[in-house]
Simulated scan of single mutants.
Amino acid sequence: MYNYVEDGDSPARAHAEGDEAKYDAFMTRIEAGDKIEPDDWMPDDYRQALIKLISMHGMSEIMGALPEKEWVPKAPTLRRKLGIMAKVQDEMGHGQLLLRVAEDLMAPYGKTREDLIEDLLAGRLKFHNVFHMPTKTWADAGMVGWLVDGAAIISQTNMLDASYGPYQRALQRICQEEVFHAQHGESIIMALAEGTDEQRAILQDSLNRWWEALLMFFGPASAETTGSSKQDIMIKYKIRKSSNEELRQAFLDKYLPRVFSLGLTVPDETVHYDDKQERWIYKQPDWARFKDIIANKGPRSQERLTLRTIAYDHNRWVRQALAR
């Protein structure tokens, strides 16, 4: 997403002349664990980091509903159909809630949720790599719920005490609902794992196809890899607590034993736990491919953006009517 602040025209510059005292007071509040509210003074890099994080999170919730939406008419039973419909509805609600939080942050720049949607459709705003991927089988619908939402829970609970109050409060609700989503996905996975040889083969194939995307979920390990200090800014301002690699290791700690207990394997012969380093060793995903995917060059990127564009254009009259 492009930067909403024009050079020299920020409403809340961190180190502008006369703002040093405000910045020091802001950091004192951050260190004390206070929650920053929309009308409070904040440094511009803090505001920008929040806008990028929350808008990407919100759009990922909305775009993330699309892979599972494809399986609503194809779910194997009525119970499964109702479950995945409820999950899709929740994800869309999360997206709307988060975009409202982002909109408050953009208010000083005269920007709205409408601008965020247009950024998404124009390719200026990214959404999560996993939601560019295809859901080819019913096992994929379970994999999204079990492991993708499981990864999201690890990432989001890491920010449950985020310094920005509106986001922290939104995450309280979102994480509670994501737990049910992960349980829904696990239920699908367990049914397939306990099923026929054909069902187990479909499940293993799904895990093989999703493994690299799951490793990519948390992003590259270091700023050197990305050329960005985004992680450092987020930790400095207590928006998040852990680095990308720490979150990935937490995911592996939680889910690899469960994967192996089901008799499944991962498509990486190097995977093992190193007792000396106290961490999982794994083959690094293709980070160049990751950059392509989040630049809307993934397997389903254009198809899902087209669907989102059609919905946006088709419902324009509703927004116009509400604005009158």
Rank of each mutant, 00 (worst) to 15 (best):
A223F: 05
R79P: 00
M190R: 15
Y4A: 04
I294Q: 12
E6H: 03
A223V: 02
N296R: 05
L105C: 09
S261R: 14
R248T: 06
T306L: 03
A250P: 02
P134Q: 07
T196R: 08
P299F: 15
G58Q: 08
C175I: 09
K238I: 00
I62Y: 00
L207P: 01
T265A: 15
K69P: 00
A152N: 06
E178C: 03
R173V: 06
I154S: 15
V5E: 14
E114S: 11
L307N: 01
A221H: 15
I51T: 05
A321D: 10
R319S: 10
W41C: 03
E245F: 10
E114P: 00
R79E: 09
V179L: 10
R79S: 12
D268W: 05
E278F: 03
R279P: 04
R29K: 08
R173Y: 14
A221P: 01
Q183T: 08
T196D: 09
E278W: 05
K111E: 12
E118M: 04
H128Y: 14
V266T: 15
P267D: 12
R209D: 07
G219V: 03
M133Y: 11
A311T: 00
R13N: 09
K236I: 02
G93M: 06
R279G: 08
R100G: 14
I153W: 08
E224M: 04
H128F: 12
I189R: 06
R248V: 04
Q302S: 06
M56S: 13
Q48D: 14
A151P: 01
Y282P: 02
D24G: 05
K81I: 02
K74N: 10
A49I: 03
L264F: 13
S261D: 14
G145K: 05
D119G: 11
S163N: 04
Y167L: 07
K230Q: 15
M59P: 00
W317G: 05
I235G: 14
D197P: 02
G185M: 12
D161F: 02
D205T: 03
A86M: 03
T77L: 06
E17L: 14
E91C: 01
D9P: 00
L192D: 09
F127W: 02
Q199F: 05
K297L: 09
K254M: 13
I30K: 09
L264S: 13
V144M: 08
T309M: 11
K236P: 01
